[in-house]
């Protein structure tokens, strides 16, 4: 087989989603001078402290591990913003707050490898966990809305989509298949009620 079975079923693995999110740009503060680096995806640098520079997340994490930079957390990754988001998340039952698509992956990568660059990282971890729980509850509730036409899921992150994908897709497909047979079923039902109505008219 060209693709392993576990990939065919759930579309993306969590590590693949993390891989995708590692191409997001992030601001770093280099700690030492380094010449510009030419990569296939573009040229980054030259690195001249104390000038900050934007690089892809994977590069930032590698540099961080070698103690060559410190990472500036994205502007949504701080206590005040996340508290607001959590509040909005709790107040509005029908919508998801506007966190970036990769908020979950980016925050977990950063908290993992650069927690010393993020002030109050422990509190942030708890807040993120709360937000994730609330959002997860909402997606579960959203299952009620599932139909075989469409559903709108604005602001849902890639990781969250991937989580619900197997179940939602299966349910969608099953409903679709049932409805393909349904017209015949409905027709026969309609004619039944009609005959009943006409018979009651007679009385």
């Amino acid at each position: 087989m060209a693709l392993p079975k576990y990939i065919q079923q759930s579309v993306f693995t969590p590590s693949e989603i993390e891989f995708i999110s590692e191409y997001e740009q992030i601001t770093i503060l280099p700690l030492q001078r380094m010449e510009a680096i030419t990569l296939l995806e573009g040229t980054y640098g030259p690195f001249r402290p104390p000038l900050t520079i934007k690089v892809p997340l994977w590069l930032a994490v590698t540099l961080k591990k070698k103690h060559k930079c410190s990472i500036q957390p994205p502007k949504w990754l701080n206590i005040e913003t996340l508290k607001k988001k959590k509040q909005r998340e709790e107040e509005n039952e029908k919508e998801f707050s506007d966190l970036p698509t990769h908020y979950f992956e980016i925050s977990s990568v950063l908290l993992d490898s650069a927690s010393d660059d993020i002030p109050y990282s422990d509190e942030i971890k708890i807040l993120l966990k709360d937000i994730r729980e609330i959002r997860r509850r909402k997606t579960k509730k959203g299952l009620e809305l599932l139909n075989s036409n469409y559903i709108q899921l604005d602001n849902l992150g890639l990781m969250e989509i991937n989580e619900i994908r197997p179940f939602f897709s299966k349910a969608f497909n099953d409903m679709r298949k049932l409805e393909e047979i349904l017209p015949r079923f409905q027709d026969s039902q309609a004619s039944q009620t009609y005959s009943m109505a006409s018979s009651s008219n007679r009385y």
Binding site: S148, N149, Y150, Q152, I161, F172, L182
Partner: peptide, 25 residues
């Protein structure tokens, strides 16, 4: 878009909206 049993439905697609729908649509 075409929904179930070929009934067409109107949806408003704005930037950054996320949908789950039929690939065909």
């Amino acid at each position: 878009i075409q929904g179930r049993q070929g009934i067409s439905i109107t949806i408003n697609m704005k930037k950054n909206n996320v949908f789950m729908l039929r690939y065909k649509a």
